[in-house]
Computed example of a mutant assay.
Amino acid sequence: MVPWPPADDFALLAELGEALRDREPPPREFLAAAYAAFSWRTVDAELAVAELTFDSVCDREPAGLTRSAGSARTLAFRGGQLAVEIEVTESGIVGQLSPAAGGRVVARTADGPYEEAPVDDLGLFSLGPPPSGPIQLHARAGRHEVATSWVSLR
């Protein structure tokens, strides 16, 4: 193996040529690093983070529109012009975006998206039960877009 970094351009070209001729698949950790680097393409959208403003597990009074009693858990997020309110039950997640507008919500774990749902004109959406571990919702309604902070729902 040639010492890294190569001493000159010709050594570098030889090393790259050898890598291109290699028929073995890349190691799993290389693929994981490549996918992680690729995810940075959306970093600008993720800079608009909706922070958790209410969690029924910790807080006494709701901070936003959701006011139902007896649900397993209620959370409210606010980021810029968009508020995201969700109710988590055993059967799944129901939520509302405010201001209300049609759009899309993508739920994801650290491994990537696991579910996507439409948002109707009233800002309402519904998702299945969340997986264990932290999740993040990426919401788009009208011309507003935000990603919630990461939160564990189970």
Rank of each mutant, 00 (worst) to 15 (best):
L13C: 11
E15M: 09
L16V: 12
L16E: 13
L16Y: 12
G17D: 10
G17M: 04
E18D: 09
L20H: 09
L20S: 10
R21P: 00
R23M: 12
P25K: 10
P25C: 11
P27C: 11
R28C: 03
E29I: 11
E29D: 15
L31Q: 07
A34W: 15
F38Q: 13
F38W: 13
F38L: 12
T42Q: 04
D44F: 11
A45L: 08
E46M: 14
L47H: 12
L47A: 14
L47I: 11
L47N: 13
L47Q: 15
A48C: 02
E51L: 14
T53I: 13
F54P: 02
F54D: 03
D55Q: 08
V57W: 02
C58L: 14
D59I: 01
D59R: 00
R60A: 14
E61M: 14
E61Y: 14
P62W: 07
P62E: 08
P62V: 08
G64Q: 10
G64S: 13
G64W: 09
L65F: 11
R67F: 00
R67S: 00
R67H: 00
R67I: 00
A69D: 06
G70A: 07
S71F: 04
A72P: 02
T74S: 08
L75M: 07
F77S: 05
F77H: 05
R78L: 03
G80P: 03
Q81G: 13
L82C: 11
A83E: 12
A83K: 11
E85A: 00
I86L: 03
I86N: 01
E87T: 10
E87Y: 06
V88D: 06
T89K: 08
E90Q: 09
S91C: 06
I93V: 15
I93Q: 08
V94W: 05
A100L: 02
A101Y: 00
G102Q: 03
G103V: 03
V105C: 04
V105W: 01
V105F: 02
R108Y: 02
A110D: 03
A110T: 04
D111H: 06
D111E: 07
Y114F: 10
E115Q: 13
E116V: 13
E116Q: 13
A117V: 02
A117R: 02
P118M: 03
P118E: 09
D121R: 14
F125P: 08
S126E: 03
S126I: 01
S126C: 01
S126Y: 00
L127Y: 07
L127T: 09
G128P: 13
P129W: 11
P130S: 03
P130H: 01
S132P: 06
S132Y: 04
S132N: 07
G133N: 04
P134M: 12
I135P: 00
I135W: 00
A139M: 06
R143C: 03
R143N: 09
H144L: 14
E145S: 15
E145I: 10
V146S: 03
T148H: 10
S149W: 07
S149Y: 05
V151S: 07
R154W: 12
